Simulated scan of single mutants.
Amino acid sequence: MTPLLVFDGNCGFCTRTLGWLRLLDRHRQIETVPLQRAGAAERVGASPEECASSVRWRGADGTRAGGAEAIAHALSVALDAAWPVPFYRRTARWQERLYQLVADNRYRLPGITPWCVRYPGDCQ
């Protein structure tokens, strides 16, 4: 199973951040899908509302996560390094608070043209 990250395709900040992740993922191990694509939420075992509130992850081993934990898993795969997940676990409360602050304000943060504007055929 290919690791999968579902992100908000209407968010310019999210699209910019996805670009950084793709630069780190040199071996193209992670599939990235906008939550606006039909069936995206179901593929990560989440509701559309959960996907709208935070990025969602489904790992190759079936691991599911959201928010800062999802980012830690994605970084671990992209960097081919184990440390992001244990680091997340030691600092989870702090990371989740910071993630929520960013998520709550993501449409106000600087970004680029949102994925769904660039690739409207990829979104519903």
Rank of each mutant, 00 (worst) to 15 (best):
residue 2 T to I: 13
residue 6 V to P: 11
residue 7 F to N: 03
residue 7 F to K: 01
residue 7 F to P: 06
residue 9 G to T: 09
residue 9 G to R: 10
residue 12 G to N: 14
residue 16 R to G: 05
residue 16 R to W: 15
residue 19 G to E: 01
residue 19 G to W: 02
residue 20 W to S: 01
residue 20 W to Q: 02
residue 21 L to I: 07
residue 21 L to P: 05
residue 25 D to M: 04
residue 25 D to S: 03
residue 28 R to H: 11
residue 30 I to T: 01
residue 31 E to Y: 00
residue 33 V to C: 06
residue 33 V to Q: 10
residue 37 R to V: 06
residue 37 R to D: 00
residue 38 A to E: 13
residue 39 G to K: 10
residue 40 A to F: 14
residue 41 A to M: 09
residue 45 G to D: 10
residue 45 G to E: 04
residue 47 S to P: 15
residue 49 E to W: 11
residue 49 E to V: 07
residue 49 E to L: 12
residue 51 C to F: 09
residue 51 C to P: 02
residue 52 A to V: 11
residue 52 A to H: 15
residue 56 R to V: 07
residue 58 R to T: 10
residue 58 R to A: 02
residue 58 R to K: 13
residue 58 R to G: 03
residue 59 G to V: 14
residue 60 A to E: 12
residue 61 D to P: 13
residue 64 R to V: 04
residue 66 G to V: 03
residue 66 G to H: 00
residue 68 A to M: 10
residue 70 A to F: 07
residue 70 A to N: 06
residue 71 I to P: 02
residue 72 A to P: 14
residue 73 H to M: 12
residue 73 H to Q: 11
residue 73 H to Y: 15
residue 75 L to R: 03
residue 75 L to Q: 06
residue 78 A to M: 09
residue 81 A to T: 01
residue 82 A to Y: 06
residue 82 A to D: 02
residue 83 W to C: 03
residue 86 P to Y: 03
residue 87 F to T: 07
residue 91 T to H: 14
residue 94 W to L: 14
residue 94 W to E: 02
residue 95 Q to V: 00
residue 95 Q to N: 04
residue 97 R to F: 03
residue 97 R to P: 06
residue 97 R to W: 14
residue 104 D to Y: 13
residue 105 N to Y: 12
residue 107 Y to I: 04
residue 108 R to D: 10
residue 108 R to L: 14
residue 109 L to H: 07
residue 110 P to R: 08
residue 111 G to D: 04
residue 111 G to E: 05
residue 111 G to S: 03
residue 112 I to K: 08
residue 113 T to E: 10
residue 115 W to V: 01
residue 115 W to C: 06
residue 117 V to G: 05
residue 119 Y to A: 05
residue 121 G to R: 05
residue 121 G to K: 05
residue 123 C to W: 06
residue 123 C to E: 03
